[in-house]
Design a protein around this nucleic acid. Structure first.
Lengths: 220, 220, 220, 220
DNA sequence: CATGAATGAGAGTTCATTCAT
DNA sequence: AATGAATGAACTCTCATTCAT
C-alpha cells in the first residue's frame, strides 16, 4: 500500500518513503525498466549487463541495484512491465468479441513497440533456465491464451470461426505462429516485410475461417 | 600411476596422459559437439561456458579450444551439426511427396533427439546478436522451408492441401507453429504432453486440408 | 575480523572490506601507476600482468581494471605519468639556456628515479607494436627533442656549442646516446658505474663543445 | 664436431645422426630461426609465440620444440644467429683499419637486413629479464665494442680520430647512438628517412673527427 | 624423425554484487 | 537516497610444454 500504483513490489527491503510521494521511486524504476528493455533488445539477454543498463539510463550501477535487488529481479520486472502493457491491450479488445480485431491489435501492438518482440523472445528463451521468470511468463501467457481461446470459442458459436478444431488448440496454433514469427523476424527481415506480415496474418485468419461451402454452413 | 614418465605433474589429482593419443580428429570433434549440445540444452546458451562443455566431455578447456578456435566457432558447429541431422531426415522425406509424412517425421525427429528443440531455440534467439550464426541458420532454415513449400505445392496440385493460400505462406505458418511450440514447450510441459502435441499436429494438418465440401473440390 | 558484517566471505583468507572507502580517485590511480611502474621495471613489460600489478598494489585485479579500463590504458597512463615528471624537469631547465645544465638534470633525473630508464626502455621497445602508445611516446618525445634542440641552438649562438652540425642533428645524437645507454645499462652494470656514466656524459659534452683550436693542431 | 658448421649447438640432447649428413637438421634449424626472426620483428618479442613461428615456417609447433628444446633456447639461437652475421661483417671490416668503413658497413648491414634492428632491439630489452640471453648479448656485444674501440684507437694514432676522448668512450658513444636510433626509428619513420640517417651518420663522423682548427675559430 | 593431441597455468576482461560513505 | 569503490569469481582465449604415436 505504500506503492499504490506499483503492481509488483518484488521483495525490496526498503519500504517506500513515508511522507513523500512515491512517484519518484516508481518513475525511476520505470525509467530503468525502459533502459533495460532497450539494452536487452539491442544486445540480447546474455549481453544485458547491469552496467549497460545503467549506462543507457545515464546512472550508476549502484542505482540499478538500489532499485532492483538483483539482476534476476530486474529481468522479471521487465517481463511484467511488458505483459502489463500487453494486458492493457487485451482488456481493450476482450469486450469486442472479435478475433480479427484481436489479431489486428496484436499486430499493431508489436509494431507500435518495436522492442516488444525482441525482448519477449529473449526472455521467453531464457526463462527455461530461470524458474522464477518462467512462472511469471507462464502465468501471464496463460492469461493471454485464455482470452484468445474465449474469443475463438465465441467466434465458433457465432459461426465466424471454424468449429472442427477445439478453440484451445486453435488458440495455441495462432499463438505459436506469432511466437515463431517473433523469433525469426529479426534476422530474416526480407521475409518479414510489412506487406508480407500482413499476408501471413490474413492467411492465418483464412485458416481459421469456416469454409465457404453450403455443406459446412454455420449453425442456426 | 597413470603417467609414470610424466616428469612434472604440477598439482593435478589425476589428469589425463599428456602425449598423443590414438584419437580420431573427427570423432573427438563430434564428441565435443555432443557435449556442447547437452550443456546448451541443460543450462542455456548464456551459461554454456567452454569450461562446462569441457567438463561434460571429460577434458580440459584447452582441449575444447584446440578443436574449436573460439566459442563462436563451437556454437556454429553445433548448429551445423544439428541441421545436418535434420537435413538427413528431410532428404529422406522429400521423395515421398507427402506433407503428412514430413510433419510426422519432423515430430518424431524432435522426439528422438530431445535436445534438438532446446538447443535450436537457444541458438535461434541468440542468432540475432551473432551475425555469423544468423547467416548459417538463415541458409539452413531456408532450405527447410523450401522443402516444406515444395511438398505443400505438390499437395495443392494433388488436391490434398488447400489451395486458397499460397504454398509459401502455408509453409511459413507451419514452420512458425513448430518454432513457437519449440519455444514454449520446455517450460510448460503440461501443455505439451505427447498426446496434446499429437492433437496440435493433427489440428495443424486439418487446418491445411481442403474443406470436405463439394464446392471446393479438387481441380479435375 | 576485518569484515564483521560481510555476510558471505566466500573462501578468502583475509580480503579487504567491500563497501566504499574514503579513497581519493586520483591518489589511488597514482598508487596503481607506481605499482605498475615497479612491476614493469622488475619483470619487464611482457611479464607485467594486471595480476602482478594488483598484487604489488595490494589489491585485486578487479580494482586495477576499475581504474584502468584495459591493460593498454594502464600502460599508456604509466608512460604519460613518467613523461609528466620528465617534463616538469624540462620546464625547470628550459629557462636556464644551458645545455650542460640540461644534461646534468637529465642524468640526475634518471638517477633519482631508478625505475625511469628500465620502464622507459620497455615501453619504448614495446611501442613499436602498440600504435596508441607509440603516438603518445612520439608526442612527448618530440617535445623533449624540441627543448634539446632549442638549447643547443642557443648554445651555438652563444658559441658554447659547436656550430658545424645543425642543432637538430646534435639533439638527435645526444638523445640517441641517452636511449642507447638506457637500453644497455641494465644488464651491463659494470660498464655503467656512476663514475663511468659521468665520464661518458662529460665526453658527450666534449663532443659538442667547439674545438679549442690552435692547441689542437692538425696532424703534420 | 658432428656439426662442423654449426657454431653453437645449444644443449640439445640428441646427438646428430651418425652416418647421415647433418645438413638437413641444420638447414631446418636455420629455417626456423629465420621464421622466428620474422615473427619477432613483425609482432614483437611478447607476441612471438611458438605457434606463430611454426605457422610462419609452415610446420607444426611440435617441430619447433623438436628443434629447440624451449622457447628460451630458440630466442637465444636467434640472437646468436644474428650476431653471427654481424660478426662476419665485422671480421671483414676489421682488417681495413678504417672507422668510416666500419660505420658505413654497419649502416648497410642494417639496411640489407631490415629485420636486424627490430629483432635486436626486442632481444636487447628483453634480455634484462632473461639472464642467459643477457650473457649471450653481453659477450657478443663486448666483441663488437672491442673491434670498434680498436679501430678508433688506430684512428687516433693515425690522426683521423680526435684523441681528446679515450677510444673506449668514443666507442660506447657511437654504439649507443646506433642503439638509440634503432629503438626510435621504427615508430618515427619520418625522422629516419634514408637521407636523414645519412646526415646523422655523417654528423656522427664529424663529431669524432679532429677539428680542422684555425679555420674553425669564429669566436673572437 | 616428426607430429599433433592435450594439458594446465595464466593472461585480460567482464560482471553481479556488496557496502562505507 | 544514492553513489561508486572494490571484490571475487567467472569468462574466453593463448601459450609453452609434454609425449604417445
Amino acid at each position: 500500500m505504500t506503492h499504490p500504483n506499483n503492481r509488483n513490489p518484488p521483495s525490496t527491503t526498503a519500504g517506500a518513503p513515508r511522507g513523500r510521494p512515491a512517484g519518484d521511486h516508481t518513475a525511476k524504476r520505470v525509467e530503468l525498466l525502459r533502459a533495460a528493455t532497450s539494452v536487452i533488445a539491442e544486445n540480447g539477454y546474455a549481453n544485458a549487463s547491469l552496467r549497460a543498463v545503467a549506462q543507457k539510463a545515464g546512472c550508476t550501477t549502484g542505482a540499478v541495484t538500489y532499485y532492483f535487488a538483483s539482476r534476476q529481479e530486474l529481468v522479471i520486472a521487465v517481463a511484467e512491465h511488458h505483459f502489463d502493457s500487453f494486458d492493457a491491450m487485451l482488456a481493450d479488445v476482450r469486450d469486442q468479441t472479435d478475433i480479427r480485431t484481436l489479431v489486428e491489435r496484436w499486430l499493431s501492438h508489436t509494431t507500435d513497440d518495436p522492442e516488444f518482440w525482441p525482448v519477449m523472445s529473449q526472455l521467453l528463451v531464457h526463462a527455461r533456465y530461470a524458474p522464477t521468470l518462467a512462472r511469471v511468463i507462464e502465468r501471464r501467457y496463460t492469461h493471454f491464451r485464455t482470452v484468445y481461446t474465449e474469443l475463438l470459442a465465441t467466434g465458433q458459436e457465432q459461426g465466424t470461426v471454424r468449429d472442427d478444431i477445439p478453440a484451445d488448440l486453435l488458440a495455441d496454433q495462432l499463438a505459436a505462429m506469432g511466437d515463431g514469427w517473433m523469433i525469426m523476424a529479426p534476422f530474416e527481415p526480407a521475409r518479414f516485410s510489412p506487406s508480407r506480415i500482413r499476408a501471413l496474418v490474413e492467411a492465418a485468419l483464412t485458416l481459421i475461417t469456416p469454409p465457404p461451402c453450403p455443406a459446412h454452413g454455420p449453425q442456426p
